[in-house]
């Protein structure tokens, strides 16, 4: 004779959750007007076709002169490679300057905003500033403030990225300030140090590596974001992409996209290995804070 079997716990919440998600999905799909869902099945085939054309462009001899629409006289495939590369450097420069601006403005502000270091009630205002900036897409700074002042220039793009970076970098920096070990700060204060001395001696050394890793991560994000500003007219690779793809010049699009991918991947790799070095130090430092995980980019809102 068997004993009574305990009943399995209800699966209802999970099932309801799944059904809710499904309902939301269907609802959104239905609400999406003029979506032309019937075109969806054809998309993979079409995209593959375009990819093939892109590959043709990439595979062409750089000295050959392309035929067809959108070819300036005297242009070779090599010219296209070169333009893409040149504009990609523009975008990277824009992203770098934006990151430098964001880092150098957010760094001091974060000390005035962190709960454990803020000298005054100013911190609520600064926190509000960080959160406010984070909620606004970078494109908005560009079109409402930077483009009117700086015109259609990479400077406008760099400034927009810079202002936008203050939000995320500020928030991450103040979080790493708040995560420091308070002991050294207390010890330094107990020795009669001023606020500034305490920050420099006890706080900065503890949070700088993480913060620099965030700067690098933000640089990677900004490279991508600069493409958007390029589309708006700030120049750089975004402008080329929008011209080339917008005019359906697939061969040239293939070349341009490949340059973007390769350069971005290389920069990402360099940045990631520098970040790793900063956080974990060189192999000799076993102790210290080596047990800390790399900052999860999930907290970094673009």
């Amino acid at each position: 004779m068997s004993t009574t079997r305990p009943k399995a716990p209800s699966k209802l919440p999970a099932t309801l959750g799944m059904l809710g998600m499904l309902a939301l999905l269907i609802l959104c799909a239905v609400m999406l007007e003029r979506a032309n869902w019937d075109r969806l099945p054809g998309v993979p085939g079409e995209v593959l076709g375009y990819l093939a054309k892109m590959a043709e462009g990439v595979a062409s001899d750089p000295r050959a002169e392309p035929t067809g629409r959108g070819v300036a006289p005297g242009d070779t495939y090599g010219t296209w490679w070169w333009i893409a590369f040149d504009k990609m450097i523009d975008s990277i420069a824009m992203a770098w300057i934006g990151t430098v601006i964001g880092a150098s403005l957010s760094f001091p502000l974060a000390f005035l905003a962190a709960n454990n270091t803020a000298p005054g009630p100013l911190r609520f205002a600064i926190r509000g500033l960080f959160n406010g900036i984070r909620a606004i897409p970078d494109l908005v700074f560009a079109i409402l403030v930077m483009l009117p002042i700086f015109g259609l220039t990479p400077t406008a793009g760099a400034m927009a990225l810079g202002v936008n970076s203050i939000g995320t970098l500020g928030k991450l920096t103040l979080e790493s300030i708040e995560a420091i070990d308070p002991g050294p700060m207390e010890a330094v204060r107990a020795s009669g140090a001023t606020w500034l001395q305490t920050m420099r001696v006890a706080v900065v050394p503890q949070m700088l590596p993480e913060t620099m890793a965030f700067w690098l991560y933000r640089f990677e994000v900004n490279i991508r974001a600069s493409a958007v500003l390029g589309v708006l007219g700030a120049g750089g690779i975004g402008k080329v992409l929008s011209d080339v793809i917008g005019h359906r010049l697939w061969e040239r699009a293939g070349i341009t996209l490949l340059v973007v991918i390769v350069v971005t991947v290389i920069v990402d790799q360099i940045s990631a290995s520098v970040r790793h070095r900063i956080i974990h130090g060189s192999s000799s430092s076993r102790r210290g804070r080596a047990d800390e995980p790399e900052p999860l980019p999930v907290t970094v809102t673009a």
Binding site: D181, G183, P184, A187, A190, P205, Q206, P209, R289
Partner: peptide, 11 residues
């Protein structure tokens, strides 16, 4: 002042 946890900036 000297503390139980040393309170050094270990880095």
């Amino acid at each position: 002042m000297i503390f139980q946890g040393f309170n050094l900036v270990t880095r």
